[in-house]
């Protein structure tokens, strides 16, 4: 998957899960908190995105992502898995 495709996955999950993100422009510089996401919504978006992108990011690394660009950096860097359960 390309970075753009992964970003599409993340944006689609944000629109499904985070009410404040629906119908909004989403850029890599923003964070999920900018759309009013609570902690549970953020975890759900990340978990589903990892599964759909077939990438697994370490929890310690994930906690350091400050915005969506950082999350995409981690998804890009993570090795592609044959099956991911998150």
């Amino acid at each position: 998957m390309t970075r753009e495709e992964m970003f599409d996955v993340v944006k689609a999950n944000m629109s499904t899960i985070i009410e404040g993100a629906r119908g909004k422009e989403i850029s890599e510089k923003q964070s999920m908190k900018d759309f009013g996401a609570d902690s549970l919504e953020m975890v759900e978006v990340v978990s589903r995105s990892m599964k759909q992108c077939r990438r697994k990011i370490k929890r310690t690394e994930l906690a350091q992502a400050k915005n969506l660009g950082d999350l995409l950096d981690l998804l890009e860097k993570a090795p592609e898995a044959t099956a991911v359960t998150v």
Binding site: S39, V43, S47, R59, T85
Partner: peptide, 17 residues
């Protein structure tokens, strides 16, 4: 303190959480 709206979620199976 924390609060969450009660709703269906699949967090119980999340390896991140």
């Amino acid at each position: 303190i924390d609060v969450e709206r009660l709703r269906p979620t699949d967090i119980a199976s999340s390896r991140y959480a």
